[in-house]
Amino acid sequence: MPVDRFKTWKTLSFSLVLIMCGLMACHKKEMAPVPEPTPPASAFVFAKGADISWLTEMEASGVKFYNPVGNQKDCMAILKEMGLNTVRLRVWVDPQAGWNNKADVIAKAVRAKSMGMRIMIDFHYSDTWADPGKQGKPAAWANLSVSDLQVAIETHTTGVLNALKAQGIEPAWVQVGNETNDGMLWPEGRASTNMKTFAKFIASGYRAVKAVFPNAKVIVHLSDGFNNTMYRWLFDGLKNNGATWDVIGMSLYPQPSNWTMLNMQCLDNMEDMVSRYQTEVMVVEVGMSWDQEASCRSFLEDIISKTKSLPGNKGLGVLYWEPEAYANWNGYTLGAFDNRGVPTTALNAFRN
């Protein structure tokens, strides 16, 4: 081949190679692998938890906590080591001593989040304890009308939740009312005399939660998880008056002599709630005398198993109420720490 023609051919060949490489590069860019889709949400995780709302008050009083081998540690860290993954925190509107107010709740929630614990917020809508025997209105709400009470519920709820949100905390569950067997914010919201108003209060709480945290599950909570008649009465009343909820919460405080029977009745009730209202259920409070640790462990293992047995993972979890209370703290004896400040073997039920 003559030299000039060879040079021309070589130049053309090189140009063709460059063109082909460019085309291949473009094609490769256009056909780049599609990024893997975001993996689906993690599998269902059963909540094994505790209400530890007394914790900061106990610490301020100098109370110490020790792990099972006797080493002093942060109480939340001890509970996590025992297998718990969830913390429940009560909220009072304007408590006299400050404990369980917005600032105290945020402080505990920040700690819980830092340890990877999920969080449940429990609004009492009171300045102090709200339970089946007392549902007193906050002092600042004493003279409000029903419509103004609805506004107060929403304002208080969104205020606390927005403060949590500002700290990067998103609760998994929010209770609107605590052990509302006969409603809340008495006398206006007493269910036995005005179910319609109680339903309005629940609706106000529900709206407020969803406005801040659309994915948080709203709980309506009653005591006596074994009492199916009461649950049907209350939740039929709420449903018939337009109230909405995501989860039915239950309390269960048996004795060593009757826990087997009450657990079975509670399971029957949970199954009925799931079927009757197509709702999820959760045992948000349990307890037994601290010095009955063997019976308490058996009780806990059984109620955890029964709650997990509900179809479709409709049983969301079991939470112990103030297990860290010990040495007759505030006169309470149903904790799960002994008089040395060490967890009893009852809490081993949460390890599995």
Score class of each variant (00 low, 15 high):
Arg5Asn: 08
Thr8Ala: 14
Leu12Met: 07
Val17Cys: 10
Val17Glu: 05
Val17Trp: 05
Ile19Asn: 04
Met20Ser: 14
His27Ile: 11
Pro35Trp: 06
Thr38Cys: 00
Pro40Asp: 13
Ala43Asn: 09
Phe44Thr: 07
Leu55Asn: 02
Leu55Tyr: 15
Thr56His: 14
Lys64Asp: 14
Val69Arg: 13
Glu81Thr: 09
Gly83Tyr: 08
Leu84Gln: 12
Val87Asn: 00
Pro95Arg: 07
Asn100Gln: 13
Asn101Ile: 03
Asp104Met: 06
Ile106His: 07
Ala107Trp: 00
Gly116Ser: 06
Ser126His: 09
Ala130Ser: 15
Lys134Leu: 11
Lys134Phe: 01
Ala140Asp: 07
Ser147Asn: 12
Gln150Leu: 01
Thr155Tyr: 03
His156Thr: 04
Gly159Met: 10
Gly159Gln: 11
Asn162Leu: 13
Leu164Gln: 10
Lys165Thr: 05
Lys165Gly: 07
Ile169Lys: 12
Val176Ile: 15
Asn178Arg: 14
Glu188Pro: 00
Glu188Val: 10
Arg190Ile: 05
Ala191Asn: 05
Ser192Glu: 08
Ser192Leu: 05
Lys196Ile: 02
Phe198Ser: 03
Phe201Thr: 04
Gly205Thr: 09
Tyr206Trp: 07
Val209Thr: 09
Val209Cys: 11
Val209Asp: 09
Lys210Val: 06
Phe213Ser: 07
Ala216Phe: 05
Asp224Ile: 03
Phe226Pro: 00
Tyr231Asp: 02
Phe235Met: 12
Thr244Glu: 14
Asp246Cys: 09
Met250Arg: 02
Trp259Asn: 04
Met261Arg: 05
Cys266Gly: 01
Asp272Pro: 00
Asp272Val: 07
Met273Phe: 01
Thr279Leu: 10
Val281Met: 07
Val284Glu: 14
Val286Asp: 11
Met288Cys: 08
Ser289Lys: 14
Trp290Phe: 15
Ser295Met: 06
Leu300Met: 12
Asp302Glu: 13
Ile304Met: 08
Gly312Ile: 08
Asn313Phe: 04
Lys314Ala: 13
Val318Pro: 02
Glu324Gln: 15
Trp329Thr: 04
Trp329Ala: 06
Gly331Met: 02
Val342Phe: 11
Arg351Pro: 00
